[in-house]
């Protein structure tokens, strides 16, 4: 089980957190102007990367803040965490 460095609270046990899937998928500002295909792309299609993934986590049993994480999904190594709205610290 991971130790996650919440950007607001510091290092905590994984059991305090919930994962929220791929990060940086912006909800379209004008959904009604999208085609069904484009809407499906937003709603369901995921990179599901094996390797370095940018993803969302929520400190659900802590400060309740959402933040981003860079994690290698092939070995679960956490590379970085950063706040929502911030640029990823790793390319």
């Amino acid at each position: 089980m991971f130790i996650i460095n919440c950007p607001y609270c510091g290092e905590r046990e994984q059991s305090e957190f919930k994962a929220g899937g791929e990060a940086h998928i912006v909800r379209p500002k004008q959904p009604t102007e999208l085609s069904d295909d484009e809407w499906a792309e937003y709603l369901f299609m995921r990179k599901n990367i094996k390797g370095i993934q940018f993803e969302r986590w929520n400190h659900s049993h802590g400060c309740r803040k959402w933040f981003n994480m860079v994690r290698d999904t092939s070995n679960d190594e956490i590379k970085a965490v950063y706040k929502m709205g911030e640029k990823p610290p790793i390319e």
């Binding site: 909800r27 969302r56 959402w66 709205g85």
Partner: peptide, 13 residues
């Protein structure tokens, strides 16, 4: 509650 917080913090900050 979780869903509302999610939208509030990540889509509509």
């Amino acid at each position: 509650m979780g869903k509302l917080e999610d939208y509030l913090q990540t889509e509509w900050p």
